[in-house]
Amino acid sequence: MLNMNVKAPLSFLLCLCIYSAPSFATGPRVAPSLFANNTQYLYTSDFSPFISSQTENKGVLIEIINTVLKSSDISAEVNILPSKTMAQYYFSQENALAIIGYDFNFSKQSQQKSMFVPILSIDEYYYTYAPVQQELKWNGELSSFKNKVYGTTKGNNVAKYKAAGIKIKYGRLASLLQKMKNKQVDFIKSPQLSLNNALDKHFPQQQSAFIKMEAKAIESVLGIAFNTQHADGKQSAEKFKQGLQKIIANGEFTSILQYHLGKKVDINPYLKHLK
């Protein structure tokens, strides 16, 4: 009945970003990524404010990556998926060009085929909900959390927590905060910026109840892991490294950080991995 001969050579992937008040759970999701068939994807998931489908230019890390891709003439698009495990699937099982983020929890096989380019250093801290967990202290050893419940995102590596006798509950940051309030989770780990964003959005009146434990839990490095088994993987990784150095040297990197994190931001902590 319809003109089926009108075939567009466009290949559309209605990708998985954030939905502005979607109304149909089984509906066309009109995503910005209407791509051609041969588009290469860099997969990731939300990690606000570094990766965010809700903010301009998709967050500070993605703006840096897109700037490098453009300046290095690497033809690829960032695809922000609804979960970290989905990004891990496309990298490990469907030979995607790259995965963006950190703590990829790679299998030995995925680890061997990945070439990681570090971009931003971030400090992460343990947090607890003070009205419920007044006695919980971080002494630098995970054994101090033995028999407690650690809340984290599915897809993160939890082996060392399990080995220390810590129980695991999964969830997104907002739901983990709620679970801490509900006594289902005792502590979580997060960069301060991410936690502050989540508190501003979901618990604006109760921010002081969520307590940061000193000292920092870990220094993590956000970056992009290229797939060396992908036809363009090694070459893209090399081009990306050079492009990144170029935008650090010419000041674009600093400008992007300042645009997203404020004019007064000290960029040195974010570049600790370079030292």
Binding site: L10, C15, F24, G27
Partner: peptide
């Protein structure tokens, strides 16, 4: 429709709430 930019020429009707970003 060969490229994404081809869509610029058209006003596209969609269901409210389905637009992503």
């Amino acid at each position: 429709l060969r490229r994404l930019s081809d869509l610029k020429h058209y006003k596209i009707g969609i269901l409210k709430g389905t637009l992503v970003n």
